[in-house]
């Protein structure tokens, strides 16, 4: 114990020795250091702001195009779209929401709110709603966008937004045409009271699909297929009853 204490004091003594300035010019004044760091930070700030200003429109455009591409993919026939926010209390236009946010009279942000995209065809008729869903896959969370058609009460397509599934196996959920054919008209009818799904969506083993609300899984990629089934089941269970309640607003507008 005493030995270690001695050691400590010795080493700190050495440190002190090396820190105590023999030549004064070795330790610059605080002003010099602050000036250097401040100067560099200023240059950095200017560069970043300049680049941000320059790239921002392109980035926004890229993001818009990416989401639109996904929406038009999952809702066939759509050429136009409007973003809405939906939660248990209300449905409102995203633009309205942003205004109310900025004016400070926000009531929506208290509960979990989902962004949904209403897609319209060339004549302005509502052809479908696109929504996001996510669930744990084999490697990481898979996020998809799926289209729902109120007319046929079915899912009209899915598009993978983010997935890190195993190449050659799990990533087939986005490329396997037979698997994607499940979602051309996947039954998602609501019950009489419009409170829950008549037949919850489920994933079945490869080649065992018998009903319209079942998803035929990819052989060899059961976990990823099940994840898609699970996220659709849970998302439709939560979102569709809410959506039906507010659907008239979208159609009217």
């Amino acid at each position: 114990m005493t030995v270690s204490a001695n050691n400590n004091s010795e080493s700190s003594g050495q440190q002190k020795k090396s820190e105590t300035p023999p030549p004064v010019q070795n330790l610059p004044s605080n002003t010099v250091m602050i000036r250097a760091l401040g100067g560099i930070a200023t240059i950095a700030g200017v560069i970043i702001v300049f680049v941000f200003q320059f790239t921002q429109p392109y980035i926004a455009e890229n993001k818009r195009r990416a989401i639109e591409k996904a929406i038009y993919q999952v809702v066939p026939g759509a050429v136009n779209r409007t973003s809405y926010l939906l939660n248990e209390q209300a449905l409102m236009l995203e633009t309205e929401f942003n205004e109310s946010e900025s004016s400070g009279s926000s009531t929506v942000s208290q509960v979990s709110t989902e962004t949904i995209y209403a897609a319209f065809d060339a004549s302005g008729k509502l052809v479908g709603i696109a929504m996001e869903a996510a669930a744990q896959g084999y490697q990481d969370v898979i996020r998809i966008l799926y289209g729902y058609s109120p007319e046929c009460e079915c899912i009209t397509g899915i598009s993978i937004l983010k997935s890190t599934e195993t190449p050659g196996l799990g990533d087939k959920i986005g490329t396997d045409l037979k698997f994607l054919a499940n979602f051309i008209a996947l039954d998602a009818k609501l019950n009489q009271e419009k409170t829950a799904l008549l037949n919850p969506i489920e994933t079945v083993k490869h080649g065992r699909k018998t009903a319209d609300w079942q998803i035929d899984s990819i052989s060899g990629a059961t976990v990823s297929s099940n994840a898609i089934g699970k996220m659709l089941r849970e998302s439709t269970k939560k979102m569709l009853p809410l959506l039906i309640k507010h659907l008239h607003k979208i159609i009217k507008s």
Partner: peptide, 17 residues
Amino acid sequence: VIIATFVTVVDYVIQAI
């Protein structure tokens, strides 16, 4: 600070591309 600045620049540029 200098390196982080240019990384941020690259980050924005790649997003834009």
